[in-house]
Design a protein around this nucleic acid. Structure first.
Lengths: 193, 193
DNA sequence: CGACAATTACCTACTAGTAGGTAGAACATC
DNA sequence: GATGTTCTACCTACTAGTAGGTAATTGTCG
């Protein structure tokens, strides 16, 4: 087990702890229990908690960007891209592997977050919104998607509804709720002409 | 300053602290600083933190129910009721008096919340969803609102989008974002016939 | 190759400070 | 004088973070 693995494990366990309860919802002790190292050893990899969470969000964003890039390459149709995106989250929520977007959860706590974390969380929102905007624009240009307003506004509404659907699924304790809320998003965007 | 006022002040300061960072985002020390009493005195009014937050959510729900009842009495048109509901939150976010729904914020942290708090948070979601459903049904019956699907599903989507809009406003640090996301909700529901 | 320095990774032991919570005295008010 | 409220004083458990040390690995140079 080399260094890379340990700091990876720290980040992975911290991620799932954050998904459960956010920045103040976990401690170094929680991580050390999962990873199997001492509390102090975490500081070797990440000097402070803010460093740890910032690193975690940076990596989360990289993986999200990679996922989007893969989607862009493998799924040509804009509507199918949105469908795949929703399907990804539906699966994550259903199997409880990652039943919430870490950035969305952290964003709820922005007022009590270290500034370096806030910056990264904001960047994720901008990146996601920007990608969704481009998908909607492409879909509209191709005639496969019908937008009621500006692509940017539709993208923001799409993203917000997805985040709200995660929240409702958690609040009701019902993974199906995510699909109930998000499925109509696609239907509405499907062209009527 | 009698007992009622003090426990009221405790609940009020705890509410604004929860709105900022959720259950683990504040401590008794934070409350005592605001209210001007000693840490230990809070325990006289609320034996445990779980009791305090549960009481807070119960009161929050009562006030929400009262607000809805007032809306039912003063605003006859279903579309206007939705408009008033969104306007209420738009104002809360713009003046930063309560820039997030306390129950929505707590709901994000359900996995790390005491069970007695979870129960109350869930109840708020059900009550709000139930009211929105009734508004949509009434609007559809009157022909003033046009629903693309079942009223219950539309209500859940409406609520989720509102919560997501709060989140985006916070993430971007832009109160306007709430309106950008929620205004189209009303436009879409406005009858086209 | 072997010697030796530097680096990495983790440890034990500890710090100051904070968490929620308790016991009992003091004080006020009816 | 009884009741309700707040206080001081304290507790235990835990917080993030530090100090200093020990192996093991890696790089480098004669």
């Amino acid at each position: 087990m080399n260094a890379t693995n340990t700091s990876d494990e720290i980040l992975r366990s911290a991620l799932s702890l954050i998904i459960a309860g956010g920045y103040n919802g976990f401690s170094y002790a929680d991580i050390s229990k999962v990873v199997g190292i001492r509390n102090a050893s975490i500081h070797h990899h990440f000097p402070s908690k803010a460093d740890l969470v910032r690193a975690l969000v940076v990596r989360y964003r990289e993986q999200a960007d990679a996922g989007i890039a893969a989607l862009e390459q493998n799924v040509p149709d804009p509507a199918d891209q949105l469908r795949a995106y929703l399907g990804y989250w539906q699966a994550c929520i259903a199997d409880e592997s990652a039943p919430f977007c870490a950035c969305a959860l952290l964003a709820t706590q922005i007022p009590v977050l270290p500034e370096e974390v806030v910056v990264e969380v904001r960047a994720h929102f901008r990146a996601l919104s920007s990608w969704l905007t481009s998908v909607l624009e492409r879909g509209e240009a191709q005639g496969s998607l019908h937008l009621a307003g500006p692509a940017k506004a539709e993208a923001e509404a799409f993203m917000a509804t997805v985040h709200g659907a995660m929240l409702s699924a958690r609040a009701y304790g019902d993974a199906e709720m995510f699909g109930v809320i998000t499925a109509p998003l696609l239907q509405r965007l499907a062209a009527r002409a």
